[in-house]
Nucleic acid binder design. Structure first.
Lengths: 248, 248
DNA sequence: AAGTGGTCTAGACCACAGG
DNA sequence: CTGTGGTCTAGACCACTTT
């Protein structure tokens, strides 16, 4: 068994009903009892099962819809939202072809190795510096043009099944691979954005001029119970980057 | 009168009650009938005044709280939120002193001129290229160290009162000045983030090495009725920049 | 004690999806 | 037609703030 015990029960008396109910529903998702893309029980059923009024169920679901864990469709039901990291990616870079349509970048694994984690990476996993890890170097391209260079670190034990697969058969997305071969599912991610002048090595791989500005995205991918699964640093030319925020 | 007619009534029959109520409440804020920092009528009073149930009022207020236009305090009341653009700024740059405490940057107006808008700026105001404008160049510093260089454009007519004030008396924040002398209130802003290699001129002002990476924030500040008030481009060293996002 | 928002209920009716 | 979520109501009681 790879995954440890899901989490302590945390019924937490004296919290509002809708709050406890929300925790209960979250747990169903976290333990994969309810899987992404599938409908959860109807509001009436949940109200009966948890012995609360339907209004309380709605309030619990409301908050989960608000932060993107559920989706509602009138007349159809309420569904566990499938996290779409593709779209997160497009939030940062404009990967558009000449006709203005978004395209999925092609992935090329440049290197796969077993290595010792540097301190910054180990910290994300709550491990000691030097912990054994699997490391990928990956280039993502659109129309043969390199757009993002990625440095990916995974804890060895949980991800060692990946060492048996030929990197040429990895496909363009890693998360489905993690799910299929390592039994872990990425549920959310935390990203930090910075920018820097490109290093000589990165410039060569990204086909940029020396010293050109690159955007750096550091991502820690988390499981539903918020364990760190993957540490990733992505670099792309600043010229391709744009990001919008609304401030109130 | 500087501001044009606020907006058409838009009662829009057949919309949900709470939706129409939300529009009505928004209008009270937009027309400054309810001012930032002040409490709005109690839920019971609003329910009576609009002839709806208190639950419907709560739902309308819920959504306005969710997107940051109102704030609720149990036992005290519901208040119009005062937009805090200071904090938006800190979201992007870490302006911390040695003790780790956030500090308000000091502002220095480098230049004030009347100029013709370039196309990119005019577009934000929905004006023709070459429209008359007031332009500021401003440097913001912390501990004598330049951190952000700003290029600010304002439509001439509405902001010409600013030309009469000595720039030395501008203070560190512009928005209060706009409110005080031009009768306009910034209610929200849209920002776009990019990065670039610093130009020779900017490098000199920001005291950076030639070609160093800088983060560029382009901001359009909007009034409550979403008219563009100000166009601003801010540049700061990428090394001081960091931004975090949570993805689900 | 009086007044505010916060939680919770039980039910009615509407709008939409799908057999 | 049945079942789903979406809207709306009227009221009870609780928790917090202020007088």
């Amino acid at each position: 068994m790879i995954t440890p015990a899901p989490k302590p029960a945390r019924t937490d008396e004296r919290l509002p009903l809708y709050h406890r109910l929300r925790d209960a529903l979250s747990a169903e998702i976290a333990t994969h009892a309810w899987r992404p893309g599938e409908p959860i029980p109807t509001e009436a059923a949940l109200a009966k099962a948890h012995a609360v009024s339907i209004g309380t169920v709605r309030k619990a679901i409301d908050s989960m819809v608000a932060d993107g864990r559920l989706e509602r469709f009138q007349g159809k039901g309420t569904f566990v939202r499938r996290p779409d990291f593709q779209s997160s990616f497009f939030r940062f870079f404009r990967f558009l072809d000449t006709s203005g349509v978004a395209r999925v970048p092609v992935s090329r694994i440049l290197k796969r190795e077993v290595a010792a984690m540097p301190a910054a990476v180990a910290a994300a996993f709550n491990l000691a510096e030097g912990a054994q890890a699997i490391r990928f170097s990956r280039l993502r391209l659109i129309a043969e043009r390199p757009l993002v260079l990625e440095d990916i670190w995974l804890p060895y034990q949980r991800f060692k099944p990946l060492l048996k697969i030929d990197t040429g058969e990895f496909g363009d997305l890693l998360y489905p691979l993690y799910e299929q071969h390592c039994g872990v599912m990425v549920a959310s991610a935390q990203e930090t954005l910075t920018a820097e002048a490109v290093s000589a090595r990165h410039a060569r791989l990204l086909e940029l001029e020396a010293g050109a500005p690159v955007v750096v995205i550091e991502r820690v991918a988390l499981s539903a119970d918020r364990q760190a699964l993957e540490w990733r640093q992505s670099r792309g030319p600043a010229s391709e980057f744009h990001y919008q925020v609304e401030i109130r």
